[in-house]
Simulated assay, not measured.
Amino acid sequence: MNRQNLNYSKYTSRYSPRHPLAKHAVSQIGKLELRPQDIVKAMGYPQQHTIVTCDRLRHVLSSDILGLNGSDVDTYFSAHEFLKALLIVLDIPYETFADNITQIEFDLANYPYPLSQYRLRAVINFKFTAGANWMSRGVAASKANVYLPDDIAKLHHVERESIVQQCIHAHYKKYKGNLPYNGEINGYRLIVKQRHAVVDRIEYGLPECE
């Protein structure tokens, strides 16, 4: 590892950025060789608040929503103000990420956080032959995936149910009688996860196709 990488590790190892803006900010921290206490001091925090504010800084830069849900605030900055002050210190133009930040705030104001994750799959019975290797089995199994719109979690439950039914219908129409290893679709299963834990399973029968 060269000296530059050592410096990056020294100044950035406490952060686990998930959002593109956070990744850019952490990269900038490494380039500027800024310690957490240097950053919060430049943001205007008094010395007696250094430890707790450094924790807030780590939370913001490790959050997929940049801490904008206000779960970690203080008397100096709101969640939005904290982020703006941080960008100024890191010499990152706010305007570059303004639309992205606005979208996060809109989603937080209008949808639950975190959003549920939806996965829809066909329940298929394959008749694998003795010569079917792991690769061909994997390709066959991938046909069970039913792709849902990216914004499925943001839809009202009535609209979401309608979309699920449409996706099931389209998948069944495409793959009925057209699956490898004489695959037979027996139904569909919608898995709902919250914070990576399964919170609901919904079973669907076969649709009526014309």
Rank of each mutant, 00 (worst) to 15 (best):
M1W: 10
M1D: 06
R3Y: 14
L6V: 10
Y8Q: 12
S9K: 14
K10W: 09
K10A: 12
P17C: 04
A22H: 07
A22W: 07
H24E: 14
V26T: 09
S27T: 07
R35M: 13
P36W: 07
P36V: 06
Q37P: 00
D38A: 06
V40D: 01
M43E: 07
M43P: 08
G44A: 09
Q47V: 13
Q48D: 14
V52A: 14
V52C: 10
L57E: 00
L61S: 04
D64E: 15
I65M: 00
I65H: 09
G67N: 03
N69S: 11
N69T: 06
D72M: 10
T75K: 15
T75R: 15
A79C: 01
E81M: 10
L83G: 04
L90A: 08
Y94D: 01
E95F: 08
T96N: 03
A98Q: 15
N100M: 11
L108N: 05
N110C: 07
N110P: 05
Y118F: 15
R119I: 12
R121P: 00
A122I: 02
A132F: 06
N133M: 07
M135E: 09
R137Q: 13
V139T: 12
N145R: 13
V146M: 02
P149H: 03
K154N: 04
L155F: 11
V158S: 13
I163W: 02
V164P: 05
Q165E: 11
H169R: 11
H169V: 05
K173E: 13
K174T: 12
G177R: 01
N178W: 02
N178H: 14
L179Y: 01
L179N: 04
N182L: 13
I185N: 02
G187M: 11
G187C: 05
Y188N: 08
L190C: 06
I191A: 11
K193N: 10
K193L: 08
K193Q: 09
R195H: 07
A197L: 14
V199I: 15
R201T: 15
I202L: 14
E203I: 12
G205D: 04
P207T: 03
E210N: 11
